[in-house]
Design a protein around this nucleic acid. Structure first.
Lengths: 334, 334
DNA sequence: GTGAAAGCGCTAACAA
DNA sequence: TTGTTAGCGCTTTCAC
């Protein structure tokens, strides 16, 4: 049996409420009693039962972070950012991984109505177009903030990066380096970020009077070998691109793998710029030119927005914060 | 106000206990009543309040994962493994990041006595030698399993990899490739895994009749620029090594960075083998020879051990499971 | 098969 | 300043 407030109260000949207030450093309690309670509690190694107080107060000090994947430098770093502010505020971070599976995402979000968490930070999965579960949660009492992968259908505060401009820049740089057949590799086309990046790519091509060819726009999945096969096919086809804009780091490394196996030279045969937060990008062979998202900052900002909502200083419903990415021009695009 | 069991009961003209049992699919309840309750609950989108039931049952369906870092491929992948079994068992994973700070680790572990989690998986931080907090938790009712970075001072089940043999192999391969001045780069020397790896390195040198030189054994920290400076100093010194065994992937990439800036050739000037789970190791310049730990498996196994303890099929106190790492010989060691 | 009631550990009115 | 008391929403005897 863990030690409870009641035991402290009876041992000290006090009422439970007195002890509760003393522990909560209430001004109603005399300094003397407070000290007595605190000292005794410490000597007993008292730790309050979170569940009891959660039940009573309808608040949990837990926040949920829902991500498609955790072994990915963007999400791992964003989680770091989130955790840094959560920890500072005394909140706990529960991680939910959807593995790009919308069914999982739905059941996860549904659970949130059980009161296990006070708020939710989410980067949506690519597996599907349904938004009902997001709507339901947005409608509920529990605040939700999107980060990175947002849903344009659902009203909720969000933190994003400048995907459109970044993709535009990435494409432009390839054009400037004389690429004329530039492919775009994205994850599922239903993802907001993929749409934005694709649009940026598209516009850059148009602006530079290059044709947009559908067969150069490819969408991967979370199945690695399928992606490899897709990229392989692209790179052996007659319309082999001389430049690639990759919307995720996974796709970029897969391009590297395929190029190595096909003995294609980067950047000689094909140049590439990728959206990626990998710290090893400069160490790759060749160094990978990247659009580096401010992952840590985005996590931090999203968490701060959530805490603002939790403490009532509510951010407006559809508030959006944009934190720009940075282009690092490296060998792979030269 | 969320909808509760009581509302269902009164709407259906039943007792709360009946509803509770029906929801729990108890055999005491008639099929007819069960259906009535279940249907109505579903129509109301009823979700039970986890906190109330946790308070009552003294169990939370939460497990804690305590790691030094999350933006590291080993830990990220291990978390994936843990989450895969937790999700399947209907448990939630709360992530705690110590950032290699033992003070943080202590306060995190202390919180666990509040009943927020049913069990703990931990990979200890490097920042200090204290073990009291680990002892305290091991002594408490809440089960704890070590994975990867264990404490040799504290009795608890653990899952590890064959650090000693792996380091031995890594060192041996460098010797076979004619390295004669082999350095060892580790994190804090108080870490079990660093000790094991160092011992393996040590023994391989002895077995091959090479001298062990203290100035070739270096310990890094979580301060990147300090590590870089340390490595830089090592690589410009008169006793510059011709081989390096790096105990973590961070240190390995830092060696790459320094070598690039010093124009030192890998493997020509210095060869390197590193403990790492990076998926990009083969894509580095040059491809990095690695000891790859079974991160996902280790996470999965640790989680399974924990669930065994939670469900009473208790694993013996000091049970240890070892899952071997694999050596990938690549260009950096040739 | 169903219901009444006690209580998990804590908080917060309200009373003293 | 301190104490009494009524719950938070649920589970679980035990009685009907």
């Amino acid at each position: 049996m863990a030690i409870t407030i009641r035991k402290i109260a009876s041992d000290l000949n006090l009422a439970v409420s007195t002890v509760s207030k003393a522990l909560g450093d209430s001004h109603e309690i005399s300094a003397h009693t407070k000290k007595r309670v605190l000292d005794y509690a410490k000597s007993l190694n008292y730790v309050p039962n979170t569940y009891a107080s959660s039940l009573k107060r309808h608040t949990t000090r837990n926040i949920a972070v829902v991500v498609p994947e955790v072994a990915d430098s963007y999400f791992a770093t964003a989680i770091n950012g989130i955790e840094s502010v959560a920890q500072q505020k005394g909140y706990h971070v529960i991680i939910y991984i959807t593995h790009e599976d919308q069914g999982k995402e739905e059941s996860i979000l549904k659970e949130f109505r059980s009161g296990r968490v006070d708020g939710v930070l989410i980067s949506v999965s690519s597996g599907g177009d349904a938004t009902k579960h997001l709507h339901d949660l947005a409608q509920s009492k529990i605040p939700m903030i999107f980060f990175d992968r947002v849903s344009s259908q659902v009203e909720a505060p969000r933190v994003v990066t400048n995907d459109f401009e970044s993709a535009y820049q990435a494409t432009e740089i390839l054009i400037r380096r004389n690429c004329r057949t530039i492919a775009f590799l994205g994850l599922a086309p239903n993802l907001s970020i993929v749409q934005e990046r694709l649009a940026g790519y598209h516009e850059a091509l148009i602006d530079q009077k290059l044709k947009v060819k559908d067969n150069l726009i490819l969408f991967g999945s979370s199945d690695d070998s399928a992606n490899i096969a897709m990229i392989h096919k692209l790179l052996v086809s007659r319309s082999r691109p001389d430049g690639i804009v990759a919307a995720t780091e996974k796709l970029a490394t897969q391009v590297y793998t395929v190029c190595h196996s096909l003995r294609l030279k980067i950047p000689g045969d094909v140049k590439i710029v990728a959206f990626s937060s990998m710290s090893t990008a400069p160490l790759l062979n060749p160094p990978l030119a990247t659009i580096t998202q401010p992952a840590f900052e985005m996590g931090k900002t999203a968490a701060s927005m959530l805490f603002k909502k939790l403490t009532g200083k509510s951010t407006a419903e559809a508030e959006q914060i944009m934190i720009p990415s940075k282009l690092f021009d490296r060998k792979s695009a030269e």
